Computed example of a mutant assay.
Amino acid sequence: MTTERTYRLGVMLGDGIGPEIVPASVRVLDAALAAAGAGPVDWHELPLGASAIEEHGSAIPAATLAALTRLDGWLLGPHDSAAYPEPFRSQLNPSGAIRKHFDLYANIRPARGFEGGKAIAPDTDLVIARENTEGFYADRNTYAGTGEYMPTPDVAVCMGIFTRPAVERIARTAFELAMRRRRKLTIVHKANVLQLSSGLFKKVCLEVGQAYPEVAVDDFHIDAMTVHLLRRAADFDVLVAENMFGDILSDMTGELAGSLGIAPSINASDDRCMAQAAHGSAPGIAGKGLANPIAMILSSGMLLDWLGTRHGDERLTAAATRVEDGVRAAVRGGVGTRDLGGTASTAEFTDAVVAQITTRA
């Protein structure tokens, strides 16, 4: 069912190359929405990052968080929190603060090779569903603090947390993804050594899988999984993993598909979604027009797909398809930024994508 809903989306430019790649993504989304016959998005730019520290005294102002609550989703540019002055550098970074505030428990990271790109394994076409709130990432495991502490200067302790509700919901997300794709799901774990914690993750995923008999399920230890991906990435469809395993594997699969510069992702809950490229802010090339906007553009397209699926809006899912098709057509046609072996600037690559979307309308 197609609705006539007008979507309100937030835009946070972030730091480094963010002010270049995020507006590029907005341009592409507007073009794709128009080509799909969807109404224009109501965009809301909000302060975040180094500029927000200067103007508002916070990297993630309270007014920004309040405004995000009233929106359907948002685009988040990369941030350079390591360069923030204290005390902001030691605080939870803006992305982490937003994820925790809105309980964005699912980090979805696809990896698909580009024809005409620089993929190590060009036939890669998979998605990693990464649990985003606990696992071995200490900064996401506690209500207050980071879950990492030092009883003495020579002892460091880090908590790894696994709970049934958190595993159940990421498992359901992964199985629903598999149902929309090739109906294959792989559980990544280390239950042979971490029998209780990682063992619970594997057990609960298998239990959730009983409600999806159409999906073929297998599982691999994390160390073996890296080898299988290197040797036969094309055999895998959807992978579900705890936080740290999912982070490591998604960086690896991004490189297999081409580079982190083309690796998109979304962070989502049941009712909120944030588009965020998997890469960093690349301050060394900021402002030079050299940044590759592909990851941010594709992340933004994933946001459209998430919204379209959630609201039953075929216009948005069609627009999301146009975003990816336009990017791939541009790369296939030989247009690429320097990291892809091309000569196009950020703006020139964006122009090429918009042209592909417009001519295919």
Rank of each mutant, 00 (worst) to 15 (best):
N192V: 06
S198D: 15
V217I: 11
L260S: 12
V217Y: 00
M225A: 14
N192F: 08
N192A: 06
V215K: 02
A241L: 06
V193R: 01
V227P: 00
V208H: 02
R231G: 03
Q210P: 00
V193H: 05
L194V: 10
F236C: 07
A191S: 15
A191N: 11
K203S: 15
C205P: 00
L196Q: 13
V215Y: 02
N192Q: 10
M252D: 06
D235F: 04
I262M: 12
I248Q: 13
D223T: 01
I262S: 11
A233S: 10
L229Y: 03
A224H: 04
D247E: 10
N243W: 12
V208S: 06
V238Q: 04
I248Y: 14
K202M: 14
N192Y: 13
E242S: 14
A211M: 01
G246Q: 09
F236T: 06
A241T: 09
V238A: 06
L194I: 12
R232D: 08
D223R: 01
I222R: 02
D218F: 04
D223M: 05
L260F: 13
I248G: 10
L256C: 15
S197T: 15
S250R: 05
A233F: 11
V217D: 02
S250P: 03
Y212S: 07
A211S: 07
S259V: 13
A191K: 06
F220P: 00
E255K: 08
I248M: 14
I248L: 12
M244D: 11
L230H: 06
G199C: 13
L200E: 14
G209S: 04
I222V: 15
E214N: 04
L249C: 15
E255W: 08
Q195G: 14
H221L: 13
V240W: 05
T226E: 05
D247R: 06
N243R: 07
L229C: 08
A234S: 14
I248N: 07
C205Q: 01
V238Y: 06
A211V: 00
I262V: 15
D218M: 03
F245E: 05
R232P: 01
K202T: 03
E214G: 03
S198L: 10
S259C: 14
L256G: 13
D218G: 01
A216Y: 00
L230M: 12
K203L: 15
D237G: 07
P213I: 08
E255S: 14
D237S: 10
G199A: 14
V240H: 09
L249G: 12
M244I: 15
I222S: 11
A211F: 03
